[in-house]
Simulated scan of single mutants.
Amino acid sequence: MTGAPSILVVEDEPLISMMLEDFLDALGYRLAGCADAVSDAMRHVEEGGFDAALLDVNLRDGETSWPVADALSARGHPFILATGGGNEIVPERHAGVPVLTKPYTLDGIRNAFETLLKG
């Protein structure tokens, strides 16, 4: 599907990343890339070529995706924050960003991206 929106996924768990890829494919989206660390995600952000992103807030080794969220905001790229429902506090600068609580579901991904990409 050529005109399908492309999505960048920032997720540090390989199995979850693969599941998200399957969900996006089932929903008619294209995977623009996957990143499991801030440095890799920042490379994707700098290269561009995607319509929206899904950012897991907490990555491995204590990394958070806030630098990626800041870079996406600065470039005007829409994104969704994903949390495990823990104590992640969204900084005020990203207060208006949609938050998706894990575990992911197909309906949750569908609703989040339909809402995000309409606006």
Rank of each mutant, 00 (worst) to 15 (best):
H44P: 04
A32I: 04
E21F: 06
V57W: 11
Y104E: 09
A71I: 08
D70R: 14
T115V: 02
P78W: 04
E13G: 01
A41N: 05
E47Y: 12
N111S: 11
P67D: 11
G49Y: 06
A41S: 10
D36R: 11
R75Y: 04
S17E: 10
R93T: 07
D61T: 15
L8G: 06
A69C: 11
A71K: 08
G108T: 04
V90C: 03
R110L: 00
G33V: 02
I89E: 03
T101D: 02
N87T: 13
I89V: 04
G49P: 03
H77N: 09
A53P: 09
L27E: 15
E114M: 05
P67H: 14
G3D: 11
C34F: 05
I7D: 07
F79R: 01
M1Y: 06
L31C: 04
E46P: 06
V9W: 00
V9Y: 00
N111C: 06
N87W: 04
A4T: 01
E114F: 02
R43K: 12
D70T: 06
M19P: 13
K102L: 12
L54W: 01
D22N: 13
L20N: 00
G28A: 09
S17F: 00
L81Y: 06
W66C: 15
G3P: 06
F50N: 02
S73I: 08
E21M: 07
A74K: 10
M18Q: 08
A71H: 09
D22A: 14
G108F: 01
D51K: 06
R93W: 05
Y29M: 04
L27A: 10
L100Q: 10
D12M: 05
R60H: 12
D51F: 02
A32M: 10
D12Q: 03
L55V: 12
E47W: 04
G85V: 03
T2Y: 13
S6Q: 15
E114I: 01
Y104R: 12
R75D: 10
V90Q: 08
A95P: 06
R30N: 12
A41T: 13
G86T: 07
P91R: 10
G76N: 07
D40F: 02
A53E: 03
V57F: 15
G3M: 08
D40V: 13
S39N: 11
E88C: 04
L72W: 01
T115Q: 13
T64F: 11
A71G: 03
A95D: 10
A71W: 00
G48T: 07
C34S: 09
L15D: 11
A53I: 02
D61H: 14
H77F: 09
V90D: 03
E63S: 14
L116Y: 07
L72F: 14
R60M: 15
I89A: 05
P67Q: 07
V10G: 01
K118N: 15
G62N: 12
